[in-house]
Design a protein around this nucleic acid. Structure first.
Lengths: 110, 110
DNA sequence: ATTATATAGAACCATATGGTGTTATGTCAA
DNA sequence: TTGACATAACACCATATGGTTCTATATAAT
């Protein structure tokens, strides 16, 4: 399988809480599958499956090192998420602005 | 079911492409279920299911209006996503900074 | 050489998910 | 009041997802 091919949507990849925890751990330090698995209740196989999903989303990269495989965070695909969010920010900031206005008005009318 | 109770994770809610399209449409204008469904290939029942998920995530709100039910975008829960992303931004911006540095160095060495 | 360690991969399983169609129920209009 | 319209609710289905265990292979250490 080609790790470069983003076969998994970043939204999908990030939807699972375990995968988000994997990303968190890898952001603190690159580590082997064994090390990573020690932080979870689920089996090593399950962790590997999550790593595969994250790899296909381009969010992590695994490098063989002797008999270990070290995984690294690769955060760039999160940019897509950020761009998506940027569009919606104006909507909730507008709402907050309206709320602020209403609150200030109420205060003035007292 | 209590629409206020965020029973569905915002990451999960946003993971589905159809649901993202629903959010997009609602950001353009609030509209009824029938109106919304007309934009999709899937059945109205399927769209309603997606609306239920989005409602449980607090991302939309439906208001009965006569025999119609109008849905509105409610973008505030996206803040959670934004906060989550903010943590990772430093990682990819660091990487970009490093790349920029390398590129500039190569240029200088020519 | 032999044993222990680290990962890979296959086979399997239960439940969640996204979809369907059909049947009520409530509301507007003629 | 009758028919058309909009939504609600139910029953059902196929596949995806997240998980398991067991087996195989490659590398390190004794």
């Amino acid at each position: 399988m080609n790790a470069e091919a983003h076969k998994v949507d970043v939204f999908q990849a990030v939807a699972d809480p375990t995968r988000r925890e994997v990303l968190q751990l890898l952001s603190e330090s690159s580590q082997s599958i064994a090390e990573l698995s020690s932080h979870f209740d689920v089996s090593r196989t399950a962790v590997v499956k999550h790593l595969n999903v994250l790899t296909k989303a381009g969010l992590v990269r695994g490098e063989k090192n002797g008999r270990e495989k070290i995984y690294y965070l690769q955060p760039e695909p999160l940019q897509e998420l950020k761009d998506w969010l940027a569009y919606y920010e104006k909507f909730w900031y507008n709402k907050l602005a309206k709320l602020k206005y209403a609150v200030e008005n109420d205060t003035l009318n007292k």
